[in-house]
């Protein structure tokens, strides 16, 4: 189609050349027979042509070279496309058997694929047809492999690792953000080595190191105070101490002390209430629960009970 368009343009060009009136002038061709004839026929004065028109220089006839028809015409339907277009290359209209068009014509259809610079400018993915592509990562750079493919992520369910309370606490502190408490999964991602295998090795190394490090107990760990605790431990808190002292207090210092076991059995709900405040934050709901528990603890009557 496009080829036809080009040829028709060429024809048009020829027509233009033809249309130019051929003025043959005696001064240019002094010895032409035509001139002699006219002189002898009319016997008139020669017209002085002051406005001599230059003879157009002889232009060689443009000969169109014979070109082979596009390869696409001879392509079998069931060819192996991977062999035709093995790697990334610029678009070639004669190789791609598709009626693609690209660009803009004001009054016509978009230009076809032949002689279309637009199609050559844009990146193409013709080397990445489904039968060719087998890897996860590929892109249109000269190298089919994506550099991101080297990154390795390993995920470990933390519950499956043999850790005690201390080791688990320590590993959580060491991994920080990499642990997801919602599904108990530890994610280690390595990307510092150029090859995938190296990164995988490194991830394994990291996991091993983390595991062994978490089992180590440093001498300064005994100095861990309440503020460093990751959750509120009521048993070790000042609140428990003060409650115990309050419950066992009496104005008469010699009075019988209430046994600790008896108190503790009463206190589980109180403990829960206060732990909830400390762990989940102070808000109207947790505070109300704390109030109810305190009222129970101090045996205060409910307001509604008297009415």
């Amino acid at each position: 189609m496009s080829a036809i368009a080009i040829s028709s343009k060429y024809v048009g060009g020829r027509r233009d050349v033809k249309n130019i009136p051929a003025v043959i002038h005696p001064s240019v061709h002094p010895f032409s027979s035509d001139m002699f004839n006219s002189m002898s026929d009319t016997e008139e004065f020669r017209v002085l042509d002051l406005k001599q028109k230059k003879q157009t220089p002889f232009r060689r006839k443009f000969k169109k070279q014979d070109v082979m028809p596009p390869r696409t015409t001879m392509m079998p339907v069931d060819q192996d496309w991977g062999n035709v277009w093995p790697g990334p290359r610029t678009f070639h209209p004669a190789v791609v058997p598709l009626p693609v068009r690209q660009g803009y014509n004001e009054k016509d259809a978009p230009p076809g694929k032949f002689g279309n610079a637009e199609l050559m400018k844009i990146p193409n993915f013709l080397h990445l047809t489904p039968p060719v592509v087998t890897s996860d990562y590929c892109h249109s750079s000269p190298d089919i492999r994506n550099p991101l493919a080297r990154i390795v992520t390993i995920k470990v369910k933390l519950g499956r690792l043999p850790l005690n309370k201390h080791a688990r606490d320590k590993i959580l502190r060491l991994v920080g953000e990499r642990y997801n408490p919602e599904n108990d999964v530890l994610t280690i991602m390595t990307d510092r080595c150029p090859l995938r295998q190296q990164n995988l090795d490194y991830a394994h190394y990291l996991l091993t190191a983390l595991f062994h490090e978490s089992w180590k107990i440093e001498p300064w760990e005994s100095e861990k105070s309440e503020a460093d605790m990751e959750y509120y431990d009521w048993e070790a808190s000042a609140s428990r101490k003060s409650v115990m002292r309050l419950l066992s207090w009496s104005p008469d210092q010699d009075a019988v002390q209430i046994s600790a076991d008896f108190i503790l059995s009463d206190l589980t709900e109180y403990k829960e209430a206060i732990s909830k405040i400390m762990n989940e934050g102070e808000e109207e709901y947790t505070l109300n629960r704390y109030k109810e528990e305190v009222k129970k603890l101090l045996s205060l009557q409910d307001v509604s009970s008297t009415e």
Binding site: S242, E282, K291, L300
Partner: peptide, 24 residues
């Protein structure tokens, strides 16, 4: 930031008063 008692008392104050009856 908040008018709630435990925040207002701070850790030290809370430990001093605990257990107390919060009245809103």
């Amino acid at each position: 930031e908040s008018f709630l008692p435990i925040y207002q008392l701070g850790k030290e104050g809370f430990e001093h008063l605990d257990p107390f009856v919060p009245i809103s």
